[in-house]
Design a protein around this nucleic acid. Structure first.
Lengths: 209, 209
DNA sequence: GTGTGTGAATGTTTTCACAGCG
DNA sequence: CGCTGTGAAAACATTCACACAC
Protein backbone atom coordinates (compact mmCIF):
# COMPACT_ATOMS: atom_id res chain seq x y z
CA UNK A 1 0.00 0.00 0.00
CA UNK A 2 2.79 2.43 0.92
CA UNK A 3 4.52 1.45 -2.34
CA UNK A 4 6.32 4.29 -4.09
CA UNK A 5 4.43 5.33 -7.20
CA UNK A 6 6.72 5.66 -10.24
CA UNK A 7 6.94 9.18 -11.58
CA UNK A 8 6.03 8.08 -15.11
CA UNK A 9 2.72 6.79 -13.79
CA UNK A 10 1.89 10.17 -12.31
CA UNK A 11 2.68 11.81 -15.62
CA UNK A 12 0.07 9.63 -17.33
CA UNK A 13 -2.75 10.05 -14.83
CA UNK A 14 -3.75 13.52 -16.07
CA UNK A 15 -4.09 12.08 -19.56
CA UNK A 16 -6.47 9.44 -18.29
CA UNK A 17 -8.36 12.12 -16.44
CA UNK A 18 -8.78 14.27 -19.51
CA UNK A 19 -9.93 11.48 -21.79
CA UNK A 20 -12.41 10.27 -19.18
CA UNK A 21 -13.83 13.78 -18.88
CA UNK A 22 -14.58 13.69 -22.60
CA UNK A 23 -15.91 10.13 -22.51
CA UNK A 24 -18.20 11.01 -19.62
CA UNK A 25 -20.82 12.41 -22.00
CA UNK A 26 -20.75 9.40 -24.29
CA UNK A 27 -20.60 6.32 -22.16
CA UNK A 28 -21.05 4.83 -18.73
CA UNK A 29 -18.39 2.11 -18.89
CA UNK A 30 -15.04 2.01 -20.65
CA UNK A 31 -12.46 -0.78 -20.92
CA UNK A 32 -8.69 -0.38 -20.68
CA UNK A 33 -8.68 -1.49 -24.31
CA UNK A 34 -10.80 1.47 -25.40
CA UNK A 35 -8.93 3.96 -23.24
CA UNK A 36 -5.65 2.70 -24.64
CA UNK A 37 -6.83 3.11 -28.21
CA UNK A 38 -7.66 6.77 -27.56
CA UNK A 39 -4.37 7.52 -25.83
CA UNK A 40 -1.97 5.29 -27.76
CA UNK A 41 -1.11 3.46 -24.56
CA UNK A 42 -1.30 -0.30 -24.06
CA UNK A 43 -4.28 -1.56 -22.04
CA UNK A 44 -1.93 -3.46 -19.72
CA UNK A 45 -0.15 -0.26 -18.85
CA UNK A 46 -3.35 1.53 -17.99
CA UNK A 47 -4.48 -1.34 -15.78
CA UNK A 48 -1.13 -1.49 -14.03
CA UNK A 49 -1.01 2.26 -13.51
CA UNK A 50 -4.43 2.26 -11.90
CA UNK A 51 -3.61 -0.81 -9.80
CA UNK A 52 -1.04 1.24 -7.88
CA UNK A 53 -3.93 3.09 -6.31
CA UNK A 54 -6.62 0.46 -5.92
CA UNK A 55 -9.12 -1.73 -7.73
CA UNK A 56 -11.45 0.50 -9.63
CA UNK A 57 -12.68 -1.79 -12.40
CA UNK A 58 -15.54 -4.19 -12.84
CA UNK A 59 -14.27 -7.57 -13.98
CA UNK A 60 -15.59 -8.60 -17.36
CA UNK A 61 -16.85 -5.08 -18.12
CA UNK A 62 -14.33 -2.28 -17.63
CA UNK A 63 -14.33 0.90 -15.59
CA UNK A 64 -17.26 3.07 -14.60
CA UNK A 65 -16.28 6.41 -16.13
CA UNK A 66 -17.76 8.59 -13.43
CA UNK A 67 -16.41 6.54 -10.59
CA UNK A 68 -12.93 6.43 -12.10
CA UNK A 69 -13.04 10.19 -12.63
CA UNK A 70 -13.80 10.58 -8.95
CA UNK A 71 -10.91 8.33 -7.97
CA UNK A 72 -8.49 10.19 -10.24
CA UNK A 73 -9.69 13.52 -8.93
CA UNK A 74 -8.84 12.27 -5.48
CA UNK A 75 -5.48 10.77 -6.47
CA UNK A 76 -4.40 13.89 -8.35
CA UNK A 77 -5.61 16.18 -5.60
CA UNK A 78 -8.19 17.82 -7.85
CA UNK A 79 -11.00 17.59 -5.33
CA UNK A 80 -10.14 21.05 -4.02
CA UNK A 81 -9.19 24.50 -5.28
CA UNK A 82 -5.53 25.39 -5.65
CA UNK A 83 -4.28 28.94 -5.24
CA UNK A 84 -1.64 29.91 -7.74
CA UNK A 85 0.69 32.87 -7.92
CA UNK A 86 2.01 34.14 -11.24
CA UNK A 87 5.38 35.85 -11.46
CA UNK A 88 5.98 37.73 -14.69
CA UNK A 89 3.21 39.58 -16.54
CA UNK A 90 4.86 40.02 -19.90
CA UNK A 91 3.32 38.62 -23.07
CA UNK A 92 3.51 35.06 -21.79
CA UNK A 93 2.26 35.83 -18.30
CA UNK A 94 -0.75 37.64 -19.73
CA UNK A 95 -1.52 34.71 -22.00
CA UNK A 96 -1.48 32.45 -18.95
CA UNK A 97 -3.76 34.79 -17.01
CA UNK A 98 -6.18 34.79 -19.91
CA UNK A 99 -6.06 31.05 -20.34
CA UNK A 100 -9.64 30.28 -19.49
CA UNK A 101 -9.10 26.59 -18.87
CA UNK A 102 -7.22 26.93 -15.59
CA UNK A 103 -10.08 28.31 -13.53
CA UNK A 104 -12.66 25.56 -14.30
CA UNK A 105 -9.97 22.95 -13.56
CA UNK A 106 -9.63 24.31 -10.06
CA UNK A 107 -6.53 26.48 -10.46
CA UNK A 108 -7.18 29.98 -9.22
CA UNK A 109 -4.56 32.62 -9.96
CA UNK A 110 -4.75 34.70 -6.82
CA UNK A 111 -1.96 37.20 -7.31
CA UNK A 112 0.41 38.45 -10.01
CA UNK A 113 3.91 39.81 -9.53
CA UNK A 114 6.64 41.28 -11.65
CA UNK A 115 10.28 42.15 -11.17
CA UNK A 116 9.96 45.14 -13.50
CA UNK A 117 8.93 48.10 -11.36
CA UNK A 118 7.19 49.76 -14.33
CA UNK A 119 4.60 46.98 -14.31
CA UNK A 120 3.75 47.34 -10.64
CA UNK A 121 0.26 48.62 -9.92
CA UNK A 122 -0.98 47.99 -13.45
CA UNK A 123 -4.12 45.94 -13.81
CA UNK A 124 -3.98 42.71 -15.76
CA UNK A 125 -7.41 41.14 -15.90
CA UNK A 126 -8.79 41.27 -12.38
CA UNK A 127 -5.43 41.54 -10.69
CA UNK A 128 -3.15 44.42 -9.80
CA UNK A 129 0.50 43.60 -10.41
CA UNK A 130 2.39 43.57 -7.12
CA UNK A 131 5.99 44.22 -6.27
CA UNK A 132 7.98 41.01 -6.00
CA UNK A 133 9.13 42.19 -2.57
CA UNK A 134 5.63 41.52 -1.22
CA UNK A 135 5.59 37.94 -2.55
CA UNK A 136 6.34 36.29 0.75
CA UNK A 137 3.54 38.02 2.64
CA UNK A 138 0.98 37.29 -0.04
CA UNK A 139 1.94 33.63 -0.32
CA UNK A 140 1.68 33.13 3.41
CA UNK A 141 -1.49 35.17 3.97
CA UNK A 142 -3.39 33.69 1.07
CA UNK A 143 -2.21 30.12 1.51
CA UNK A 144 -0.81 29.86 -1.98
CA UNK A 145 0.45 26.45 -3.03
CA UNK A 146 1.75 26.78 -6.59
CA UNK A 147 3.95 29.28 -8.40
CA UNK A 148 4.10 29.92 -12.13
CA UNK A 149 7.33 31.48 -13.38
CA UNK A 150 7.02 33.50 -16.58
CA UNK A 151 9.89 35.97 -16.27
CA UNK A 152 12.88 36.41 -18.59
CA UNK A 153 15.71 33.87 -18.13
CA UNK A 154 17.97 36.32 -16.31
CA UNK A 155 15.37 36.89 -13.58
CA UNK A 156 14.26 33.29 -13.25
CA UNK A 157 16.77 31.80 -10.78
CA UNK A 158 16.19 34.67 -8.34
CA UNK A 159 12.40 34.36 -8.68
CA UNK A 160 12.51 30.61 -8.17
CA UNK A 161 14.64 31.08 -5.06
CA UNK A 162 12.13 33.53 -3.68
CA UNK A 163 9.25 31.13 -4.32
CA UNK A 164 11.11 28.32 -2.61
CA UNK A 165 11.92 30.42 0.43
CA UNK A 166 8.23 31.38 0.71
CA UNK A 167 7.54 27.69 1.24
CA UNK A 168 6.05 26.99 -2.18
CA UNK A 169 6.44 23.32 -3.05
CA UNK A 170 5.30 23.24 -6.68
CA UNK A 171 6.52 25.41 -9.53
CA UNK A 172 5.50 25.52 -13.16
CA UNK A 173 8.53 27.05 -14.83
CA UNK A 174 8.36 28.59 -18.31
CA UNK A 175 11.86 30.07 -18.13
CA UNK A 176 14.69 28.26 -19.89
CA UNK A 177 16.75 27.52 -16.80
CA UNK A 178 17.50 24.40 -14.75
CA UNK A 179 17.39 25.76 -11.22
CA UNK A 180 18.83 23.92 -8.24
CA UNK A 181 15.98 23.38 -5.81
CA UNK A 182 15.49 21.37 -2.61
CA UNK A 183 14.25 17.84 -3.21
CA UNK A 184 10.89 18.52 -1.57
CA UNK A 185 10.01 21.12 -4.20
CA UNK A 186 8.65 19.94 -7.56
CA UNK A 187 9.43 21.85 -10.72
CA UNK A 188 7.78 21.18 -14.07
CA UNK A 189 9.60 22.90 -16.91
CA UNK A 190 7.89 24.02 -20.09
CA UNK A 191 10.29 25.22 -22.77
CA UNK A 192 9.25 25.37 -26.43
CA UNK A 193 12.86 25.62 -27.61
CA UNK A 194 13.76 22.36 -25.87
CA UNK A 195 10.63 20.81 -27.34
CA UNK A 196 11.46 21.96 -30.86
CA UNK A 197 15.03 20.74 -30.52
CA UNK A 198 13.94 17.22 -29.64
CA UNK A 199 11.69 17.36 -32.69
CA UNK A 200 14.49 18.46 -35.03
CA UNK A 201 16.69 15.68 -33.70
CA UNK A 202 14.16 13.23 -35.11
CA UNK A 203 13.53 15.19 -38.31
CA UNK A 204 17.23 15.24 -39.12
CA UNK A 205 17.34 11.45 -39.49
CA UNK A 206 14.61 11.67 -42.12
CA UNK A 207 15.48 12.24 -45.77
CA UNK A 208 16.31 15.94 -46.05
CA UNK A 209 13.92 17.64 -48.45
CA UNK B 1 27.20 2.36 -34.15
CA UNK B 2 23.72 1.97 -35.67
CA UNK B 3 22.40 1.48 -32.14
CA UNK B 4 18.96 2.91 -31.47
CA UNK B 5 19.21 6.01 -29.28
CA UNK B 6 16.83 5.90 -26.29
CA UNK B 7 14.19 8.58 -26.37
CA UNK B 8 15.09 9.79 -22.85
CA UNK B 9 18.58 10.57 -24.07
CA UNK B 10 17.23 12.77 -26.84
CA UNK B 11 15.11 14.62 -24.31
CA UNK B 12 18.24 15.50 -22.32
CA UNK B 13 20.43 16.66 -25.20
CA UNK B 14 18.73 20.07 -25.51
CA UNK B 15 19.42 20.65 -21.82
CA UNK B 16 23.11 19.97 -22.35
CA UNK B 17 23.05 22.24 -25.33
CA UNK B 18 21.52 25.11 -23.41
CA UNK B 19 23.88 24.87 -20.45
CA UNK B 20 26.88 24.69 -22.75
CA UNK B 21 25.72 27.83 -24.55
CA UNK B 22 25.80 29.66 -21.24
CA UNK B 23 29.12 28.13 -20.19
CA UNK B 24 30.67 29.10 -23.51
CA UNK B 25 31.39 32.62 -22.25
CA UNK B 26 32.95 31.46 -19.01
CA UNK B 27 35.14 28.51 -19.76
CA UNK B 28 36.95 26.52 -22.41
CA UNK B 29 36.70 23.07 -20.84
CA UNK B 30 34.00 21.49 -18.70
CA UNK B 31 33.83 18.10 -17.00
CA UNK B 32 30.79 15.83 -16.80
CA UNK B 33 31.00 16.46 -13.07
CA UNK B 34 30.50 20.22 -13.50
CA UNK B 35 27.79 19.81 -16.12
CA UNK B 36 25.98 17.38 -13.88
CA UNK B 37 26.07 19.78 -10.95
CA UNK B 38 24.40 22.49 -13.05
CA UNK B 39 21.70 20.20 -14.42
CA UNK B 40 21.08 17.91 -11.44
CA UNK B 41 22.08 14.92 -13.54
CA UNK B 42 24.75 12.36 -12.62
CA UNK B 43 28.08 12.71 -14.44
CA UNK B 44 27.90 9.05 -15.48
CA UNK B 45 24.61 9.67 -17.23
CA UNK B 46 25.97 12.61 -19.16
CA UNK B 47 28.99 10.61 -20.28
CA UNK B 48 26.84 7.67 -21.30
CA UNK B 49 24.39 9.88 -23.17
CA UNK B 50 27.18 11.48 -25.17
CA UNK B 51 28.85 8.14 -25.81
CA UNK B 52 25.87 7.09 -27.94
CA UNK B 53 27.06 9.59 -30.51
CA UNK B 54 30.83 9.45 -30.27
CA UNK B 55 33.87 10.29 -28.18
CA UNK B 56 33.89 14.01 -27.63
CA UNK B 57 35.91 14.33 -24.43
CA UNK B 58 39.55 14.76 -23.54
CA UNK B 59 40.65 12.17 -21.01
CA UNK B 60 41.78 13.65 -17.75
CA UNK B 61 40.32 17.08 -18.59
CA UNK B 62 36.69 17.07 -19.70
CA UNK B 63 34.91 18.39 -22.79
CA UNK B 64 35.84 21.33 -24.94
CA UNK B 65 32.73 23.48 -24.66
CA UNK B 66 32.80 24.87 -28.18
CA UNK B 67 33.54 21.56 -29.80
CA UNK B 68 30.78 19.81 -27.85
CA UNK B 69 28.35 22.56 -28.79
CA UNK B 70 29.20 21.91 -32.42
CA UNK B 71 28.64 18.19 -32.03
CA UNK B 72 25.29 18.72 -30.29
CA UNK B 73 24.22 21.21 -32.93
CA UNK B 74 24.90 18.53 -35.49
CA UNK B 75 23.22 15.74 -33.50
CA UNK B 76 20.11 17.81 -32.81
CA UNK B 77 19.94 19.08 -36.36
CA UNK B 78 20.47 22.68 -35.30
CA UNK B 79 23.10 23.40 -37.94
CA UNK B 80 20.42 24.65 -40.32
CA UNK B 81 17.29 26.81 -40.32
CA UNK B 82 13.92 25.17 -39.78
CA UNK B 83 10.75 26.57 -41.30
CA UNK B 84 7.78 26.46 -38.99
CA UNK B 85 4.09 26.99 -39.62
CA UNK B 86 1.79 28.24 -36.87
CA UNK B 87 -1.87 27.28 -36.81
CA UNK B 88 -4.01 29.37 -34.49
CA UNK B 89 -3.41 33.07 -33.89
CA UNK B 90 -5.42 33.58 -30.74
CA UNK B 91 -3.83 34.81 -27.54
CA UNK B 92 -1.48 31.86 -27.34
CA UNK B 93 -0.54 31.86 -31.01
CA UNK B 94 0.35 35.54 -30.83
CA UNK B 95 2.50 34.96 -27.75
CA UNK B 96 4.37 32.27 -29.69
CA UNK B 97 4.85 34.57 -32.68
CA UNK B 98 6.23 37.23 -30.38
CA UNK B 99 8.51 34.82 -28.57
CA UNK B 100 11.80 36.30 -29.58
CA UNK B 101 13.89 33.27 -28.67
CA UNK B 102 12.73 31.03 -31.52
CA UNK B 103 14.29 33.02 -34.34
CA UNK B 104 17.87 33.16 -32.98
CA UNK B 105 17.66 29.42 -32.27
CA UNK B 106 17.04 28.77 -35.96
CA UNK B 107 13.27 28.35 -35.94
CA UNK B 108 11.67 30.65 -38.49
CA UNK B 109 7.89 30.97 -38.42
CA UNK B 110 7.15 31.31 -42.12
CA UNK B 111 3.37 31.36 -42.17
CA UNK B 112 0.39 31.67 -39.84
CA UNK B 113 -3.05 30.14 -40.28
CA UNK B 114 -6.35 30.14 -38.51
CA UNK B 115 -9.57 28.20 -38.74
CA UNK B 116 -11.59 31.26 -37.78
CA UNK B 117 -12.44 33.09 -41.01
CA UNK B 118 -12.64 36.44 -39.17
CA UNK B 119 -8.89 36.27 -38.52
CA UNK B 120 -7.94 35.67 -42.14
CA UNK B 121 -6.06 38.50 -43.78
CA UNK B 122 -5.23 40.21 -40.50
CA UNK B 123 -1.61 41.02 -39.88
CA UNK B 124 0.08 39.50 -36.85
CA UNK B 125 3.64 40.73 -36.62
CA UNK B 126 5.13 40.39 -40.09
CA UNK B 127 2.68 37.75 -41.25
CA UNK B 128 -0.75 37.86 -42.81
CA UNK B 129 -3.05 35.19 -41.41
CA UNK B 130 -3.96 32.71 -44.12
CA UNK B 131 -6.96 30.49 -44.62
CA UNK B 132 -6.33 26.98 -43.36
CA UNK B 133 -7.46 25.71 -46.78
CA UNK B 134 -4.21 27.03 -48.27
CA UNK B 135 -2.07 25.19 -45.72
CA UNK B 136 -1.08 22.35 -48.00
CA UNK B 137 0.19 24.61 -50.79
CA UNK B 138 2.19 26.78 -48.43
CA UNK B 139 3.79 23.83 -46.64
CA UNK B 140 4.83 22.26 -49.93
CA UNK B 141 5.99 25.45 -51.66
CA UNK B 142 7.93 26.80 -48.72
CA UNK B 143 9.43 23.48 -47.63
CA UNK B 144 8.03 23.72 -44.12
CA UNK B 145 9.13 21.05 -41.68
CA UNK B 146 7.43 21.75 -38.38
CA UNK B 147 3.89 22.68 -37.34
CA UNK B 148 2.81 24.42 -34.15
CA UNK B 149 -0.80 23.85 -33.13
CA UNK B 150 -2.34 26.60 -31.01
CA UNK B 151 -6.04 26.28 -31.81
CA UNK B 152 -8.91 25.51 -29.42
CA UNK B 153 -9.33 21.83 -28.46
CA UNK B 154 -12.33 21.30 -30.72
CA UNK B 155 -10.35 22.32 -33.81
CA UNK B 156 -7.14 20.53 -32.92
CA UNK B 157 -7.71 16.99 -34.24
CA UNK B 158 -8.76 18.34 -37.64
CA UNK B 159 -5.78 20.72 -37.77
CA UNK B 160 -3.35 17.96 -36.80
CA UNK B 161 -4.79 15.71 -39.50
CA UNK B 162 -4.28 18.45 -42.06
CA UNK B 163 -0.67 18.96 -41.00
CA UNK B 164 -0.01 15.24 -41.23
CA UNK B 165 -1.51 14.98 -44.68
CA UNK B 166 0.66 17.89 -45.84
CA UNK B 167 3.63 15.67 -45.03
CA UNK B 168 4.70 17.47 -41.85
CA UNK B 169 6.65 15.10 -39.62
CA UNK B 170 7.04 17.15 -36.44
CA UNK B 171 4.29 18.88 -34.47
CA UNK B 172 4.46 21.00 -31.34
CA UNK B 173 0.96 20.70 -29.95
CA UNK B 174 -0.43 23.13 -27.38
CA UNK B 175 -3.97 21.79 -27.60
CA UNK B 176 -5.19 19.43 -24.87
CA UNK B 177 -5.79 16.43 -27.13
CA UNK B 178 -4.03 13.11 -27.71
CA UNK B 179 -4.32 12.75 -31.46
CA UNK B 180 -3.77 9.47 -33.28
CA UNK B 181 -0.93 10.03 -35.71
CA UNK B 182 1.19 7.81 -37.96
CA UNK B 183 4.33 6.50 -36.26
CA UNK B 184 6.65 8.49 -38.51
CA UNK B 185 5.22 11.77 -37.21
CA UNK B 186 6.51 13.14 -33.88
CA UNK B 187 4.23 15.10 -31.62
CA UNK B 188 5.41 16.99 -28.55
CA UNK B 189 2.54 18.03 -26.32
CA UNK B 190 2.62 21.08 -24.09
CA UNK B 191 -0.35 21.35 -21.75
CA UNK B 192 -0.21 23.50 -18.62
CA UNK B 193 -3.24 21.78 -17.10
CA UNK B 194 -1.56 18.38 -17.32
CA UNK B 195 1.58 19.92 -15.86
CA UNK B 196 -0.31 21.48 -12.94
CA UNK B 197 -2.16 18.23 -12.28
CA UNK B 198 1.06 16.28 -11.91
CA UNK B 199 2.21 18.97 -9.49
CA UNK B 200 -0.94 18.78 -7.37
CA UNK B 201 -0.60 15.01 -7.21
CA UNK B 202 2.66 15.56 -5.36
CA UNK B 203 1.39 18.46 -3.26
CA UNK B 204 -1.51 16.42 -1.99
CA UNK B 205 0.80 13.96 -0.23
CA UNK B 206 2.34 16.85 1.73
CA UNK B 207 0.83 18.01 4.95
CA UNK B 208 -2.20 20.10 3.96
CA UNK B 209 -1.78 23.66 5.22
C1' DG C 1 46.52 12.58 -10.92
C1' DT C 2 42.23 13.37 -13.31
C1' DG C 3 38.23 12.46 -15.96
C1' DT C 4 36.55 9.95 -20.11
C1' DG C 5 34.36 5.86 -22.23
C1' DT C 6 32.22 1.60 -21.35
C1' DG C 7 30.99 -3.26 -20.16
C1' DA C 8 28.75 -5.25 -16.30
C1' DA C 9 25.52 -4.74 -12.43
C1' DT C 10 21.65 -2.74 -10.60
C1' DG C 11 17.29 -0.61 -10.69
C1' DT C 12 13.08 0.69 -13.07
C1' DT C 13 9.27 0.33 -16.38
C1' DT C 14 6.68 -2.16 -19.61
C1' DT C 15 4.73 -6.16 -21.34
C1' DC C 16 3.08 -10.76 -20.94
C1' DA C 17 -0.06 -14.15 -19.63
C1' DC C 18 -3.32 -16.01 -16.85
C1' DA C 19 -6.10 -16.82 -12.47
C1' DG C 20 -10.28 -15.24 -10.90
C1' DC C 21 -14.43 -12.53 -10.79
C1' DG C 22 -18.77 -10.57 -12.54
C1' DC D 1 -17.38 -15.26 -21.99
C1' DG D 2 -14.73 -10.79 -21.31
C1' DC D 3 -11.96 -7.91 -18.84
C1' DT D 4 -9.61 -6.72 -14.54
C1' DG D 5 -5.76 -7.18 -11.41
C1' DT D 6 -1.23 -8.91 -10.85
C1' DG D 7 2.90 -11.76 -10.24
C1' DA D 8 6.64 -13.07 -13.31
C1' DA D 9 9.42 -12.14 -17.43
C1' DA D 10 11.36 -9.11 -20.67
C1' DA D 11 12.91 -4.72 -22.06
C1' DC D 12 14.83 -0.59 -20.91
C1' DA D 13 17.52 2.99 -18.27
C1' DT D 14 20.75 4.35 -14.77
C1' DT D 15 24.65 3.76 -11.97
C1' DC D 16 28.93 1.60 -10.84
C1' DA D 17 33.65 0.87 -11.21
C1' DC D 18 37.71 0.59 -13.59
C1' DA D 19 40.97 0.34 -17.72
C1' DC D 20 42.96 3.61 -20.25
C1' DA D 21 44.40 8.10 -22.27
C1' DC D 22 46.06 12.68 -21.43
Amino acid sequence: MAAPIPEVVILRLPLYYRILTLLQEETEIVSSQELGAQLQITPAQIRKDLSYFGKFGIQGKGYNVNQLLGELRHILGLDRQWSVVLVGVGRLGRAILDYSVLEPQGFHITAAFDTDSRQIGKKVGQLAVQDIATLSDTVKNQGINIGIVAVPPSEAPEVINRLVSCGIKAILNYAPVAPAIPSDVRVYNIDPVVALQTLTCHLKSLGTP
